[in-house]
Amino acid sequence: MTDLSAFPITRRWPATDPEAIQLYAFPTPNGVKISIALEELGLRYEAHKVTLKPEDVKSPAFLSLNPNGKIPAIIDPNGPNGAPLGLFESGAILIYLAEKTGRLMGNGTAERLEVLQWLMFQMAGIGPMFGQLGFFYRGEGASIQDRRAKDRYIAETRRLLSVIETRLDGQDWLCGSYSIADIATAPWLRMLCLIDAREAVGWWDHPNCIAYLDRFLARPAVQRGLVTPPRD
């Protein structure tokens, strides 16, 4: 049996199945990226709910795995050369899982790089900008009277949606075939619906995005990943 005792996080969130990938997450857009990928790839994993509260993500146990104090993070008991591997940052984890299985990252160098560029687009643009929109539109920032921040992130979200809309013209997925770029991006589009920002960002003016999210949400692996670990 694999010994994960070198990872202090396992004392706070013990591994029931130490031979499985250990996922530490909460069902936010970033968190569900990894549970969805694990489901799509059919990898054996065990999910631990780590809330966004400081007593969880800022605890010494969690910081021992991710010093940045953000979900998600994983431990793969069968990492490179068979040794356990701890990893944080959702983009890095998606790349690792895709490379581990040889799936969801295109075929050949050119397709792989295409997937990586759209993954980086999500990491550098979609995630930060949509996240700030959520804060100023529905989160703690919604009570701020000065509208400049809210208006800025609404405008930037509209712009980024138009980029995705154009990219999806004539194709089902961002890189032709389904990939980790879609797993990274679609949960953030879903977030716009969950916070009821669709009218503000002109959601209904983006039919390709609407159809894209519907296709994504219809996937059985996505449906399982979206509720893993459960919020309650």
Rank of each mutant, 00 (worst) to 15 (best):
N68Q: 15
L65G: 06
G79S: 08
G125Q: 09
L119W: 07
I75P: 14
N107L: 07
E111F: 04
Y96A: 00
A73E: 11
E114R: 14
L85K: 02
Q145R: 14
W118V: 01
Y153D: 03
F121Y: 07
Y153G: 04
R112W: 08
Y137W: 15
A83F: 10
I126N: 05
R152I: 06
R112E: 11
K100A: 08
M129R: 05
G102R: 13
L85Y: 00
A124R: 03
E156V: 05
R158V: 13
P84Y: 14
S59T: 02
K58L: 12
E55N: 12
R148P: 01
I154C: 06
V163R: 12
L97R: 08
A98G: 04
N78Q: 14
L85C: 00
P60D: 13
E140Y: 13
G141L: 01
V163G: 04
A98N: 01
R158I: 14
K70D: 05
V163S: 08
R152A: 01
K58E: 03
G102K: 05
G139P: 03
G127K: 02
Q132P: 10
K150A: 08
I164Q: 07
Q145C: 06
I71V: 15
G139S: 07
L104P: 09
E55Q: 13
G127M: 03
M105T: 04
D56C: 00
F135L: 10
Q145Y: 01
I75D: 12
Q145I: 09
S90M: 14
L133T: 01
G106V: 06
N66A: 07
A110V: 09
S162W: 09
P77L: 08
D151P: 03
M123R: 11
S64A: 15
T157S: 14
R159F: 09
G91E: 02
G108Y: 04
R138V: 03
E111A: 14
